[in-house]
Amino acid sequence: MTTLWQASQQLLAGQISPETPTQHALSAIAAESGEGKRVFTKVYTAAARQQAEQAGARWQQQQPRSAIDGLPISIKDLFDVAGEVTTAGSRLLSNTSPATANASMVDRLQQAGAVIVGKTNMSEFAFTGLGVNPHYGTPANPWQRAQQRIPGGSSSGAAVAVSDGMCLAAVGTDTGGSVRIPAALCGLTGFKPSASRIDQRGTLPLAASLDSIGVIA
């Protein structure tokens, strides 16, 4: 599997088309035999393709926005996206008002040119480290998948999205292990920075004194 860093280096060297990683990610999400239906609560197929094409034009002009310009990234289903309801893995919030603005983290990804392919499933309200979700299904751990082992949580969909090539990195949240646990169970790397390192505006909280936005890759 190509890593985020490897894909970035390949883009820089002109070895791959900027559209290719997103095409591969969307194909993995849509695969009938895959975990896409349980991993994602929302997929931005058309927007992702458009963003990848725009990134391709920037790379051709040698004016990328950042090292991850055009690379597919997923976001956990507790980050606000303007015009959408933020459900946090729960049916209880499905009828609440849509967000009026993007989470700060979403804006920063877009400013960097990252292609946001979709919102990933999670433990309901991020309340468990198991990754189980009774509403949207539980993504299966890539290890011995036939046995449907738990992926770890609460950023369950984030980890399986990366392990299955549905994105090259995933942004989640970690209060007591919610990035690090699924990363460990799925054979990935999860990083929890200090709580104030990444702006949390537009992120549904669990425990404000401990919450941190982190990444899996």
Rank of each mutant, 00 (worst) to 15 (best):
Q148R: 15
A82F: 04
R91T: 08
C167P: 13
N133C: 06
Q144C: 11
S90N: 02
V85N: 12
H135G: 08
M105C: 07
S90L: 01
T100S: 07
S154R: 00
P142A: 08
S94E: 15
T96S: 05
K119R: 15
R108I: 10
T128N: 05
G131A: 07
G165E: 08
D107M: 09
G129E: 11
N141Y: 06
T120Y: 05
A161R: 08
T86M: 14
N95K: 15
S104N: 12
R149K: 15
I116A: 02
I150V: 12
A169G: 10
R149E: 06
S94N: 11
A140W: 11
A88W: 08
T173M: 08
Q144F: 14
T86W: 05
G89W: 03
V106K: 00
D174M: 02
P134K: 03
S156L: 13
A126S: 10
A169H: 00
A159I: 03
Q110H: 08
V115E: 14
G157C: 00
Q110E: 15
A114G: 07
Q148S: 10
V171H: 08
V115S: 09
V160Q: 01
S94H: 13
F127I: 10
Q147R: 13
Q147N: 14
S154N: 01
T173C: 06
Q111M: 03
D164M: 09
V132I: 15
N133K: 04
A99G: 01
R149V: 07
Q148G: 14
V160M: 04
